[in-house]
Every structure is written in structure tokens, then in C-alpha cells.
Design a protein around this nucleic acid. Structure first.
Lengths: 258, 258
DNA sequence: TAGTGGTCTAGACCACCAT
DNA sequence: TGGTGGTCTAGACCACTAT
């Protein structure tokens, strides 16, 4: 086991280092239970809080998860879904009758559920307005908020913005938007998504997001700001996807200009 | 200060909630110093460790950063670089003589520096071998590790894998790979990057990554596994980019199939 | 030197879970 | 019921920063 002199001085780091070594060496496999905090403390001749601090460091790295009343466990790799640009494609829908989300859930043998949490007329946030090529004060939009579940486990929160003028009087104001979903209705209004742009950042979940997504500590989110551009290259829809990053990844394929 | 009944039970949550409210209301602006732990404790009639726990919760959300001996401060928004597929484009290089990284640093008025930390012949990890269409045991690769700095602040760690047969006897074994960099040399060997694929996840930094990137707690990383495909659609190079997520984002533009 | 965060101790009680 | 993590207390000393 390699010694890390800079990290090995403090009791909490020493304990964390020892446990981390057991995990990376495979002696503690994913799903295995760690020694209890009290036992670790005793073994290393430290106070319980010190062992607890060591566990906290490992939890922050995403290596372990604590379960109240049961113990601390080596975190198991989650099956990940890699979402790519095909999630906007209407081809899969035409061919299978399923949205990309439902199709992926079917592949994994999980039960999909989409909860529409709100449908409102709002002034959009600055970054959304900017991408719709408008200043917020002169723009009114429809905002639809959804939560996507797999087997009743929340996977992602999606917020969609559409100019109010484009949404008014259409099924977009209803929870059920009809066949082909939102993009189906927008096509009827003359908007065909020809180009998409995804702007991606990673960050820790906000207080409320952590709550909605039931995120354990040490799991960040992938925040994707999507803009749909029509056949004229004009933006007509903006969505923000917030994925829990231990379940979802992204993939993009692109040609290189020379 | 608004009361949040669900969060307001525990002293540490109450303190965190109160401070969070001050921040989101703008009464504590980015860069501002929070009351000291001892002062917070006294104000809320709690022990110092309890106030400390409240601060820890906020740090985990990425809202504040502690600076030893100085205080706890509301985290300032960092200027972000959005890396897109153009970072693989050789056009910018031809037109400006600068790599995309150096160009971006010039835009921001920062001093770029690239440190080559190792150049070795290795058996690649499984996921890399898979993307080079080979099983690890039968594959030998050149691995180049780089760290990219802006004003001596580490921004990203990049590890590049190239089949050993393609790298042997070329300047790819040297720290300085010559004009056009790695892709320049690979073109001379007959590989033109025609298609790129980026697979993206977000996660907390490993122990060692947190150290090399000098990451404060509450900052995740964006982990991009890039595959370069040549004019025949065959993979010839795989790179892993690990960005600190508070400084770097990604952007992809794509056409939609109908 | 005074004030700050960083770490540690040695207890205590509570909430949750399995048996 | 016993073991587990979750939280809290009331101290202590150390390391760093500013003045």
C-alpha cells in the first residue's frame, strides 16, 4: 500500500486512507459493509467523531454511502444511461411508438413514470431568455416542469420553456400533450427541430434539487441547457435537464471540420 | 428570515437555512465573509461544532468556501470556459497558430501552461481498450499525461492513449510533439480525425485528482472520454479529460435526424 | 497578538433497523 | 433489544492570516 506522507499525519486521514486502500484493493467490494464507526475508532485508538470524519471524507469522494441504522457500505456502481442527441430524435418515436426515455426504461426492465409538476406562464430566467434571443422583461413563456422516474426513483428534473405566443391555445398547456409530445405539437406550429445545442455543466445539487432527486451526498448533477433551433436556425424551445450524475451520462458524436 | 418547517428542526439545519436565506436573498453577496463559526454558534445558542456542521452543509452545496485563518466566504462565480467540439478542430490552429486551449487563455488574458507529467508505454484500462476496439491484454499503448494550467491554476488533467504501433519512433514519445501537436503527428501517420465521440459523466474527484486539481470541497469534475475516428471510421486515439466543473463547461451543436 | 478555521476528545441522546 | 448511524455538547490545541 502506498504511503501518502502528506495525508497520513492526521488520525482522520489515516483512517480514511486505510479504508480507501481496502476498497481500491478490492478487499472491500461494492455492497460490502464497513466496520462500524465505533469499531473503527477503537481499532485506530481514536474518538468516534474522528472515525466519523474519516467516513465523511470517503462519502464526499463518492466511495461509500451511509445507511441509517444499518451501516456504511461501499457504493455500488449504478447502471448508467448515456443520453445523446438521439433523445431529441423523432425517428425512434415513429419506429417504436416510445419516447427515448420510455424506450431506455424498457431496455433496463424498469417502469418509467413522468410526473408533470407544474405548467405555468412565467417570465423566464435570464439565461433562457438569452437563448430565445429576447430580454427577459419583454418575454413571456410557458414553463413546464417534469420529473422522470425509473421504478419510482427520480432520475432527472426537466424544465421546458416555450414562447407563450407559440403555446397559447395548444395542448402544450395540458399535462398530456398528445402523440409525439411537445415536439409533435411544435411541429404543427411550424417548428421542426433541425439543430440542437446542448450546454453542459456539472455542479452539486441545490438544496431543493437534492431533495427532489433524493440524492445521497457525494453525487453531483449534470445540468444540460438545451436549445432547439428550427429549419431557419431560429431558437424556439429551451429546456434544462438536471440529471443525477451517478445514473446518467451523455454522449455526443460529431464531425470534425478541417 | 423565512421558516422552513421541514428543515428547521435540527439546530445545524436551522443555522444553515438562515445563512442560505441570506445568500439567496443577496444580503450576503459573492465574496462576502460570513460570521465566524464561534459567532454563529453564540447567536443561535449552539455549540461551535453545530455551527461548523451548518457551514459544512453549505460548502457541500457549493455555496461557500472556507479559507483557513481568514473566514468563510460566499463563493464567487468563476468565469467558465465552454469547451466544444471545436477543441479538436485544426482550423483554429491553422488560422491563428494557437491551440484551442492557448486561444481561450489569450481571450481571458490568462497565461497558459501545459505540463507533461508522464509519457509511458502501458496496457490501457478496459474502457479505453474497448474504445480502441481491442481487449486490454493484447493491446499496448502510449500514454501521455498532461496538466493544463491557467495562471498556474490547474484546470484540467488530460490522459491520451495511442496504439504503441502508431506512436513508436515518432515525436509522440517526446514532450514536445511539434507543430499541430499530437493530431498533427497522427495525420502524418495517415489518421485524420473525421468523427469524434465524447462520452461525458460528472462525478466527485478522486482523492488524487482533488489534490492535483487543487479542488475545494463541493466542486465535482466533468469527465470526458473522447474517441477520435479516422476517415475510415476506425478509432485511433482515446483521451480522458478531467475538468474542474466550476471552471469548465461543454457545448455541442448537432443536427437532428428526422 | 488576536481572530479565524481545522482537528480532536469523550462523552450524551436520538432515530432507524434487524432480530 | 442491541447495534447502527445522526446529531449535539463543551471543551481543547493546532495552523494559518492579518495587523
Amino acid at each position: 500500500m502506498s504511503q501518502d506522507p502528506a495525508q497520513g499525519q492526521l488520525p482522520s486521514r489515516r483512517i480514511a486512507h486505510a479504508v480507501r486502500a481496502l476498497i481500491t484493493a478490492g478487499e472491500l467490494a461494492p455492497g460490502d459493509k464497513l466496520p462500524s464507526e465505533r469499531e473503527l475508532a477503537q481499532r485506530f485508538g481514536a474518538a468516534r467523531n474522528t472515525a466519523r470524519e474519516a467516513i465523511r471524507l470517503l462519502a464526499e469522494e463518492g466511495l461509500v454511502t451511509a445507511r441509517h441504522g444499518r451501516g456504511v457500505f461501499v457504493r455500488e456502481k449504478q447502471r448508467m444511461v448515456r443520453w445523446g442527441s438521439e433523445r431529441y430524435s423523432r425517428r425512434t418515436y415513429r419506429e417504436t411508438g416510445l419516447t427515448p426515455f420510455r424506450l431506455e426504461m424498457a431496455r433496463q426492465g424498469k417502469t418509467p413514470r413522468v410526473e408533470v409538476t407544474s405548467i405555468e406562464q412565467v417570465t423566464p430566467p435570464f439565461d433562457v431568455a438569452e437563448r430565445l434571443k429576447a430580454s427577459p422583461e419583454e418575454l413571456s413563456t410557458l414553463r413546464r416542469c417534469n420529473i422522470y422516474y425509473a421504478d419510482d426513483e427520480p432520475l432527472q428534473v426537466v424544465t421546458t420553456y416555450i414562447r407563450w405566443a407559440d403555446a397559447e391555445g395548444t395542448p402544450l398547456l395540458q399535462p398530456e400533450t398528445g402523440p409525439g409530445g411537445i415536439y409533435g405539437r411544435l411541429e404543427e406550429r411550424g417548428y421542426t427541430m433541425t439543430t440542437g445545442r446542448d450546454e453542459i455543466i456539472a455542479r452539486m445539487a441545490s438544496h431543493t434539487e437534492a431533495h427532489t432527486l433524493q440524492l445521497p451526498p457525494g453525487v453531483p448533477v449534470l445540468d444540460v441547457l438545451h436549445t432547439s433551433l428550427d429549419q431557419r436556425g431560429e431558437p424556439f424551445e429551451v429546456s434544462r435537464f438536471v440529471h443525477r450524475a451517478d445514473r446518467a451520462g451523455l454522449v455526443y458524436t460529431f464531425s470534425i471540420e478541417h
